[in-house]
């Protein structure tokens, strides 16, 4: 049995035919030609800048890594600004003037943003200090048992124990 009658039946039921292919909606932006290409050195700079600019419609992606149409347009803008001879700072300022600091994948180290740089370092130092103090305490507690003459217990401790014992015996 060939599949032709079955295929014909399916086409008849679905109302479509080989002569009339279904129209498929175009879900993506069509490819288009970008502007004039840059020389390799300037194109490398464009890509480096695009790596630190955030795509506004993506989840934490740079415009260099995003395939979205918005990122494509922004990448083309970076190319245009590099072609015009703008500095890196001028290009970052251009995007910040439109999209705020959101546009920068790496926030600037100033103001409250400093917490992002100083905070982890401060926590690390604090943890180091805590560990160091614990190690020192254990070292001083263990040293008397390591063959040396037994050190006398602190007088305050002795006094406390003596008072406790006398309370119990009473």
């Amino acid at each position: 049995m060939t599949l032709a009658p079955l295929l014909a039946a399916i086409l008849a039921v679905t109302g479509s035919g080989l002569a009339e292919p279904p129209v498929i909606a175009e879900p993506l932006a069509p490819q288009r030609l970008a502007g004039e290409p840059l020389d390799p050195a300037r194109e490398a700079r464009v890509q480096a800048l695009a790596k630190v600019l955030r795509c506004p419609v993506c989840q934490g992606l740079s415009i260099a890594d995003s395939p979205s149409s918005m990122a494509r347009a922004q990448l083309e803008k970076v190319r245009e600004l590099v072609r015009e001879g703008k500095t890196d700072q001028e290009i970052f300022a251009y995007f910040e003037a439109r999209y705020g600091e959101f546009a920068l994948l790496e926030p600037k180290a100033q103001g409250i943003n400093l917490l992002a740089w100083v905070g982890p370092m401060a926590l690390l130092l604090f943890g180091f200090f805590v560990i160091l103090s614990q190690v020192r305490r254990r070292g001083s507690a263990v040293s008397p048992a390591q063959g040396g003459p037994p050190a006398a217990a602190p007088p305050a401790e002795d006094e406390y124990l003596r008072q406790v014992r006398s309370e119990i015996e009473r």
Partner: peptide, 8 residues
């Protein structure tokens, strides 16, 4: 054509 005006 290059959508750069939209970025502006």
């Amino acid at each position: 054509p290059t959508s750069t005006m939209a970025v502006d």
